[in-house]
């Protein structure tokens, strides 16, 4: 048994050399544009690299290797940055991605299911319409939503005002969506207060996020054979029972990878957060990526930023490994 195994191994090794040869050019390119900066970054994460070192780089005479100090400073909130706590940002970041997916997926599935009703008019029109948010540039979306949540002239406060008027309250509503630091529901997420800015972003990102889920769900819905529903209706299933007994389980193989994708997308949703709240108020909506950007762009602490990026890389790796496992565990029912 052992003999057979080793000879098999030898064969395999021989055949494995050639593909690497073909991959060599790609490896070289990646080495220059990916691995070199990556390694460089890891190195400067152990230094006190700042703007003044940019000219000479690692050759700068006064560049100091300070070991794990950058990392420790980040973890112990010892950086001279206001309102910064790494673990709070991390927690918020996870919650932000998770809460988005939790809303987008069911909404997408529900809307896709409703629009999939047989005999519905203008089906193609609705479907074309909900692609729209996916194709509008994020900067435009963020700008529009920032204006909607404007304290004085925004549509949201006007809407709330007219609802208030309808209910007999004539005072105009001036909610300070992006400035108010008091969480409307205290203790909702222990350790990381969810300010109004979070809810505003959730609303805006909902608009951006569900259509994609709906597109995926529509495709998956159309691949569910109609006769399954017919068989179920003869078996005695009501509409709701068909939805839970057939639609949901058969959408699962398509929706879980989509949800994982949506999670990673929200997890690193830089543009949106940056343009809408800038991470505020009081860093309550800061994501890991927006904070890293701040470290470089505004504070110019390259060493700290590098350490932070390495940490994000680690977090992303863990997220990737977990989600990848979830995706692969989701096999398609039809597959043999």
């Amino acid at each position: 048994m052992a003999v057979a195994k080793s000879s098999f191994k030898k064969n395999k090794q021989k055949s494995v050399v050639l593909p690497y040869f073909y991959l060599l050019p790609a490896f070289l390119v990646m080495g220059v544009i990916t691995f070199y900066p990556l390694i460089y970054q890891v190195i400067i994460s152990f230094t006190n690299f700042e703007s003044k070192h940019l000219l000479l780089g690692l050759q700068s005479p006064e560049l100091e290797f300070i070991g794990l100090k950058n990392y420790l400073d980040i973890f112990t909130a010892a950086l001279p940055v206001e309102n910064f706590n790494f673990f709070r940002v991390l927690e918020f970041n996870f919650w932000w991605a998770l809460s988005n997916v939790i809303l987008h997926v069911p909404a997408g599935v529900l809307i896709a299911t409703l629009l999939n009703t047989e005999g519905l008019w203008f089906k193609k029109l609705y479907r074309a319409a909900y692609i729209l948010p996916v194709v509008v540039p994020p900067l435009v979306v963020a700008t529009v939503w920032t204006n909607i949540f404007d304290e004085r002239y925004g549509a949201m406060n006007q809407l709330l005002t007219s609802i208030g008027t309808y209910l007999g309250n004539t005072a105009p509503v001036y909610i300070r969506w992006f400035e108010d630091v008091k969480p409307p529901i205290p203790g909702f997420l222990p350790g990381a207060p969810l300010t109004l800015a979070y809810y505003a972003m959730m609303i805006a990102n909902f608009w951006l996020g569900w259509p994609f889920m709906s597109v995926v769900a529509t495709g998956a819905l159309q691949s569910i054979p109609k006769d399954l529903y017919e068989a179920a209706s003869i078996d005695g299933a009501t509409g709701a029972q068909q939805f839970w007994g057939i639609t949901v389980p058969l959408l699962r193989p398509a929706m879980i990878p989509a949800a994982v994708y949506g999670f990673t997308l929200s997890f690193n949703l830089f543009n949106f957060v940056f343009f809408m709240t800038g991470g505020g108020p009081a860093r309550s909506t800061e994501l890991l990526v927006t904070f890293a950007y701040n470290l470089v762009r505004n504070l110019r602490w390259y060493g700290v930023a590098a350490a932070f990026a390495v940490i994000i890389f680690g977090v992303a790796l863990v997220v990737f490994l977990i989600t990848n496992r979830i995706t692969r565990a989701t096999q398609n029912y039809q597959e043999a």
């Binding site: 054979p225 006769d227 399954l228 017919e230 068989a231 179920a232 007994g245 057939i246 389980p249 058969l250 699962r252 029912y333 039809q334």
Partner: peptide
């Protein structure tokens, strides 16, 4: 004709 078995 297709049997219409619930695949899951």
């Amino acid at each position: 004709q297709s049997y219409a078995l619930y695949p899951h």
